[in-house]
Structure formats: structure tokens, C-alpha cells
């Protein structure tokens, strides 16, 4: 699904992680851990194709759906309108199943600005189910979710994996997945790693 070889990722032109080599097969999840600022978001943004890697290769056989810190939910629209928009973008349909899976059925007609932070997050995560894409790239998906919602979400990830999907998840809490783990502290770029400004030094 995803194969990464000798990858160096940069933030603001400076290498933050280097020498990353890993692979995620269908049905597998990879949990990225490490302290704040280690480069989890940078790595996920690079994998999502939002920024180019400084070095190395990313080989993805499946298209990726990216979920950032921000949910991309519009306050003026209802939950269902928000999700129908994403379904339209990805060429899928919003079904009651998806709403039920993320416990949003009762909230479907509420304007999103009246939702709590956890409800907003669930709306944001429900988007993943609408993408129909096999590889999920999740940046701290459980932020502001209560224990019940975390379990609900973990169930959805498991269902995704069981249907041949894969996930790369940056998280510092254990969401109870049977997953591969990658501690990014082992890959922090050293002093000599080349940055974008190398030519000036």
C-alpha cells in the first residue's frame, strides 16, 4: 500500500526527520509516536503530497485520504451538508450507515457551529469513510474525543483495515489498535543533515 525509502522530511527548509524507511501493507496500521514537534505532522503532510520530501522515495499504490488537525467543517452548514459536500468531492454518497457509524445520526441537521469539539471531530473523521480511499493518513485523530468516541473511532479504523485498507496514524495516546509502531525519535535529523539552505552554508 505504502512504501517509504530513506525519506527525509523538512519543515521551514530544515530537515526534521531523516532515514525513514517503512512499509504499510493492506490491512495494516502504523502508529507514529514521538514528542510534540518531532515531525509527525510534517511526515503526514509529506505522505499526503502537500509538501515535497527533501530526499528519499514515497511509493503509494493506493490513494490517500488525509485528516489534518483541522476538521475542515463549515460552521454555517449542517453536519449532513458538510458531509454531502465531501461525498460530492470524492464522488461517493452520504449514507445513513456512515452517519450511524460515527454517531452523527441525531446531529445530521444541526448547524456545525453548534456542535461540541468532540462532535466536530467526529464529523471531520466521518469524511474519511466518504473518501473511499484505501490509505488513511490521520493526524492526531482522537484529539477532543471522549473515551466512548475513541472506541467508536478505533472500531471504524479496524473495519477499514479489515476491508483491505491501511492507515498511518500520528497519536500519542493508545487507541487500542493492533498496529505497527514507529517511534520517530529514532529518526530525528542530525546536525549534518542537509537542508534547503545547504548551498548557503
Amino acid at each position: 500500500m505504502l512504501r517509504v525509502r530513506d525519506l527525509t522530511v523538512a519543515r521551514g527548509g530544515l530537515a526534521v526527520l531523516e532515514g525513514l524507511t517503512f512499509a504499510v501493507a493492506p490491512g495494516e496500521a502504523l502508529v507514529l509516536s514521538g514528542p510534540n514537534g518531532v515531525g509527525k505532522t510534517t511526515l503526514l503532510r509529506t505522505l499526503a503530497g502537500l509538501q515535497p520530501p527533501l530526499a528519499g522515495e514515497i511509493e503509494a499504490t493506493g490513494q490517500a485520504a488525509y485528516a489534518s488537525h483541522a476538521d475542515g467543517v463549515k460552521g454555517q452548514l449542517t453536519v449532513a451538508e458538510n458531509l454531502r459536500f465531501w461525498a460530492g468531492i470524492y464522488g461517493t454518497r452520504l449514507t445513513d450507515d456512515v452517519l450511524a457509524a460515527f454517531a452523527l445520526a441525531d446531529l445530521a441537521d444541526r448547524p456545525a457551529r453548534t456542535l461540541s469539539a468532540g462532535q466536530l471531530r467526529r464529523t471531520g473523521l466521518a469524511r474519511l469513510a466518504l473518501t473511499g480511499r484505501p490509505l488513511w493518513l490521520l493526524d492526531e485523530p482522537t484529539v477532543s474525543l471522549d473515551a466512548e468516541s475513541v472506541a467508536l473511532f478505533a472500531g471504524q479504523v479496524r473495519r477499514h483495515l479489515a476491508t483491505g485498507g491501511a492507515a498511518v496514524i500520528a497519536s500519542h495516546i493508545d487507541i487500542g489498535l493492533d498496529a505497527l509502531r514507529l517511534d520517530l525519535r529514532a529518526y530525528v535529523a542530525t546536525e549534518t543533515a542537509t537542508g534547503r539552505d545547504e548551498a548557503f552554508l
Partner: peptide
Amino acid sequence: DWEDGSLALIATSP
């Protein structure tokens, strides 16, 4: 769209 993150999500969409 930039502030609420949807621009980045749209950029990674089809």
C-alpha cells in the same frame, strides 16, 4: 477554507 483546514483537505482530494 484555509483557516478551517478544508483547503488542505481539498488539495489532497481528487
